[in-house]
Design a binder for these strands. Structure first.
Lengths: 114, 114
DNA sequence: TAGATAATTAACTTAATGGTGAACTAGATG
DNA sequence: CATCTAGTTCACCATTAAGTTAATTATCTA
């Protein structure tokens, strides 16, 4: 993994387990065991995933008693969104082209029917 | 790397070299050597990066003579944008909170002055 | 045909990732 | 104090990633 923050964010998001963890944290703070519950993974594996998310700045962790509650830190998600947004015109254009193509096809088929 | 398309897209984007390649392709089609030029990397390394991008569906490659021109295929970028967008309210909220916090601080400092 | 150019494939090294079980730390509670 | 709960760290293993040089394929051109 490269060390720049944006690369770290993308790398952290490249794992479906970690994305699911973030989705879970949308509902609010959760302990490690709560986060672990849906996954068929050992606790050390969960702990490592959380460390990756924390390293990317996507979550932060507190302490209360023997719990280490995690919460979402959306900063890097905004950076990812900003980076990707610069390409919006391309997919908008592509969809336009697809749309035009489909219309063209339909038009042609209608002419064929006639 | 996980095999689902969204994970593949995030993983492909987790490398600054590959992100720079995509940025280059915003300007239009380019050959492998053109893409390689700005980087201090061997051609096989470039070739591998392009294969990762192609595998993630982020570029497509044609052929004309001995050239293999690459072009941007923005589909997966839209999927990434869609995934990340679901978190927008969180960073908006955070910025709101930061904004409120800063206003509070300023207000407090003003009271201190008084 | 011979050789130059564009790019990929092969074989290999090194480092990082993702997982495990076992041992450990910290705090709550009988 | 003894023990249970929450979670991390350690030591290890298998797989994948990212890079290299050398060899190979495909196409154009003298």
């Amino acid at each position: 993994m490269k060390s720049d923050p944006l690369s770290a964010a993308f790398a952290a998001l490249a794992d479906p387990t970690r994305r699911a963890m973030l989705t879970r944290l949308c509902e609010g703070e959760a302990t490690v065991n709560e986060i672990a519950a849906p996954f068929d993974l050992s606790l050390p594996a969960i702990s490592k995933h959380l460390k990756v998310l924390e390293g990317a700045g996507l979550i932060s962790r507190g302490r209360s008693a023997q719990f280490r509650p995690c919460r979402l830190k959306p900063g890097p998600l905004k950076d990812v969104a900003d980076w990707v947004e610069r390409y919006r015109r391309f997919w908008d254009e592509s969809l336009d082209r697809l749309d035009n193509y489909l219309k063209e096809i339909q038009h042609k088929e209608r002419s064929d029917d006639a």
